[in-house]
Write a protein that binds this DNA or RNA. Structure first.
Lengths: 121, 121
DNA sequence: TCCATATTTCGAGTATTCTCGAATTATGGA
DNA sequence: TCCATAATTCGAGAATACTCGAAATATGGA
């Protein structure tokens, strides 16, 4: 990811409704949620939500797929991955002070919803 | 880090001049740079930069320290760390699809400016 | 075909953000 | 004390973002 894309992605997430949408879609899992359900869940008007979904889609954070009359949106975790990697290496120059503690924290995760064992290394 | 702070931090970085400032300060290292030098380097007016520095400071991304007539700003890499950890665990629920590839990428870093050996594990 | 549902697009109003010149505050040195 | 330098605060203008009602588009079913 290069700077401009990172900038757009950061700006997209730096808005409350959009961050809420993304978090909701993450929790919804790979199946995603249709626009109406998101709007209902977050108490946002359909047209306002549509604008935000469009912004999230434009920067690759969500994926849209028509499913009959409704459109299902799902979070693109790989784009979040790209953003985080950008922040760690391009933005922060791969500084060990940044990366080491994160690497450490990754090992210590306790996941509430995952099915597999705790360690992933 | 909780949601509101993450939101402010994301919004702060989602603006070109501020992202540039942060990146510049990261490259400057722990010693930081004084406001004038940053303004000169990025070709931004002093008062405009001051507004952005204030925003970065408010969300904890930079630290200010008066040094005689000038004020030295330095990047707070721990706050970037907190943001990344928020994105990985609170925002993305610690999904393995997100975390595993990042963990993998961390091991593979080749650092250009670090003095120590490549491996940090 | 006609109607209902789901979502988006359009246009306008309001709010927020960004930038700038001018004025102000703070510090150090003559 | 007086002046020069460094940075911030103030106030205003322009641009951008956010939200909303209304209208348009798309799909599925009677």
């Amino acid at each position: 990811m290069e700077k401009t894309e990172a900038l757009n992605t950061l700006a997209a997430l730096g808005q409350e409704t959009r961050l809420d949408v993304f978090r909701l879609l993450i929790k919804a899992g790979p199946g995603g949620m249709c626009a109406g359900a998101i709007a209902e869940h977050l108490q946002v008007r359909a047209n306002t939500l549509s604008t935000h979904l469009s912004a999230l889609s434009r920067c690759g954070l969500v994926h849209a797929a028509r499913d009959g009359r409704s459109i299902t949106y799902s979070a693109r975790i790989d784009q979040m991955q790209n953003l985080i990697l950008y922040l760690m290496r391009d933005c922060c120059d791969g500084k060990p002070e940044l990366c080491d503690p994160i690497a450490g924290a990754l090992v210590g995760f306790d996941q509430t919803d995952a099915s597999g064992p705790t360690s992933r290394f």
